[in-house]
Design a protein around this nucleic acid. Structure first.
Length: 206
DNA sequence: CAGTAACT
DNA sequence: GTAG
């Protein structure tokens, strides 16, 4: 196992968990998913404002946001097609970094160099006991980790390509976000920017 | 409030 | 400019 840093109880950072070859393999999986399920632009439930991050999903369920709210659903909001299957190596990564039950969703977030994600909790899953495992590919992100309450102390972490971050146990509902992307910090993506893959259990019956 | 911007 |  690679280095593991526990930044808060249940919040684990694994710097350089995936080497360059493994990152290229993961990226190939992402490209294949996106060929079937293109990136879409989510919007905020109340205001209709667009996210700066674009998204897609693979697995039986995918996270979406639109005028109706945040939810998991089985199909792409634009194409109405089912999400592509969750690739084996992503499922393996979910198990390797602590999950006891299979992932049902892999949310693919694409951050262009000017994209951000404000501080939030991942709380749309029925099963809040299973970890959320996140993989970074491409440009380094300035990630911000808070605690279980909005307004609590936060810390900034640089998540580089190949790093893994896990929110589990007492940190499963920790607030987190992306302050900014360091444009040009990686050459993994020819188009620049960053992919973040978050593997999740959604339903309780596993 | 998974948004953005303003303001210190 | 960055932190919050």
């Amino acid at each position: 196992m690679t280095d593991r840093l526990e930044l808060a109880p249940g919040a684990f950072w694994y710097p350089a968990a995936f080497d360059a070859r493994a990152q290229a393999d993961l990226l190939a999986d992402v490209r294949a998913v996106l060929a079937q399920a293109p990136l879409f632009t989510p919007t905020m439930p109340r205001t209709g404002k667009s996210f700066s991050v674009r998204m897609s999903n693979c697995g039986p369920l995918g996270w979406v946001s639109d005028g109706s709210g945040y939810r998991y659903q089985s199909f792409h909001p634009d194409t109405r097609q089912p999400w592509p299957p969750l690739p084996d190596r992503l499922q393996a990564a979910y198990a390797r970094f602590g999950a006891a039950t299979p992932a049902e969703a892999c949310l693919i977030n694409y951050y262009a160099p000017d994209a951000r994600m404000s501080l939030h909790q991942d709380r749309d899953e029925a099963d809040l006991t299973a970890p959320v495992v996140s993989l970074s590919l491409g440009d380094t992100a300035l990630f911000r980790l808070g605690g279980p309450e909005r307004g609590g102390a936060t810390q900034a972490i640089r998540l580089a390509s190949g790093d893994v971050f896990v929110l589990s146990g007492p940190s499963r509902l920790a607030f987190h976000g992306v302050d900014r992307i360091l444009g040009g910090s990686s050459r993994l993506l020819q188009e620049g920017g960053r992919f973040n893959l978050t593997l999740r259990r959604v339903s309780c019956t596993g």
